[in-house]
Design a protein around this nucleic acid. Structure first.
Ligand SMILES: [Mn+2]
Ligand SMILES: [Mn+2]
Ligand SMILES: [Zn+2]
Ligand SMILES: [Zn+2]
Lengths: 144, 144
DNA sequence: TTGACAGACGATAAGAATTATCGTTTACTA
DNA sequence: TAGTAAACGATAATTCTTATCGTCTGTCAA
């Protein structure tokens, strides 16, 4: 486990957040979950331990965990449907600050698959690569 | 342009959909748009040409274009927030049929970046690769 | 050409996911 | 242990998307 050496109390102190019962149970249950649960799925699990917990609290703490880097989001751009009209083979540069998405040509990325068969027999159609980082505009804005 | 050789009428015939004025204007405007617009952004543009158009029509036709393969979606899993608790370096296999997401270790994917600097000065933090294809379960279900 | 009719349209209600508000409670610090 | 900022629960509001439904239109065969 990633946080086995550190107690949850210490983890909260590092990030300057209060150690509440809800927060601790939420953290422990999420740590034990497999896959990529939605907030509703997490809520359902936590309610078994804390029946009075609010869905809003689940959302607020998930965001807090993600902002703190304790957990992550699967997709940087899960918000609304975005349409792709560019038919050239390309990937995306996603800014972790402003969430802007820009195209990058497959050739410019220089990322090539070396395996053809994936574990479990997954049949590959294509790759979609998100290069996550800081766009030039946000680099300029950033005060370090 | 991808469809310059083919008229919109022929494109519709290929996909068995009717050639309507709304559909044609929508298609042409979307073709001329840069980036990765949201349905609302497309709607705003199209309203200038067809003030009476409905947002529902925009959504319906965007889905139709995506289903037909005329356009694409930027993210396969933009629906709801999904949390990642797996801290090992890994990427994702996303099934284009059932939208299921499974982990694949970085090493198993065998995909390595050869460039360090990206055009435009984008500062790379990490790569997130979606391997899009058909999961074993859907391969079994599929009737070919 | 001209109906018949499936499919498409617009208006709008409904649904799902997420965020905001607000009064109460709790954890932290001195 | 009291004061205060933060967190909580309840729930309203917002945002994004889909469903419904009555009307209209494109397609195709006669
Ligand atoms: Mn793109
Ligand atoms: Mn994962
Ligand atoms: Zn940025
Ligand atoms: Zn599948």
């Amino acid at each position: 486990m990633e946080f086995s050496a550190t107690t949850f109390r210490e983890l909260c102190q590092q990030h300057g957040i209060a150690v509440t019962h809800q927060r601790q149970v939420l953290f422990e249950i999420m740590q034990g979950m497999h896959g990529h649960p939605s907030p509703e799925e997490v809520y359902a699990r936590v309610k078994k331990k804390i029946p009075a917990i609010s869905l809003a609290t689940v959302y607020k703490n998930i965001h807090l965990f993600v902002e703190s880097g304790i957990f992550r989001e699967v997709s940087m751009h899960h918000g609304t449907l975005r349409v792709e009209m560019n038919s050239r083979p390309h990937h995306h540069m996603v800014c972790s600050m402003c969430k802007s998405i820009s195209d990058i040509d497959e050739a410019d990325l220089g990322l090539l698959p070396s395996h053809q068969k994936l574990p479990g027999g997954f049949l590959v159609e294509r790759y979609a690569v998100d290069v996550i980082g800081i766009c030039p505009e946000c680099q300029a804005k950033k005060v370090n």
